[in-house]
Amino acid sequence: MISFLAAVLIVLGLFFFAGGSVGILRFPDFYSRLHPAGKLDTMGLLLSLTGIALYVVQDLTLSAILTALKIMLIVVFVFITSPTATHAILDAGVRAGLSPWTAPGKRGRT
């Protein structure tokens, strides 16, 4: 039962990863590409690593629980650092003077 739940979580995580890759390929410019790269990768990692931790913790031994805890620690640190990295990259883009993409014909205030 737990292994089935773990499989579902891992597959969901892979779905988010795939969505992130498609987004990076299809979005028009630097800023909008950072959106799938930052968000969907973090979400996919959360889901798939939670699935792996659940799979490990099936037999409730001490070493299995410790391994699952370590995996969840990876999730915590990625959750802290991945959005920060995206923020830093975006900040560098703004400081380098890259203007965001607007739909052709629909030019707002520039």
Binding site: F77, T84, D91
Partner: peptide, 9 residues
């Protein structure tokens, strides 16, 4: 944001 996150990590 960046300074505080790095200080944490």
């Amino acid at each position: 944001i960046i300074t505080m996150t790095c200080r944490l990590v």
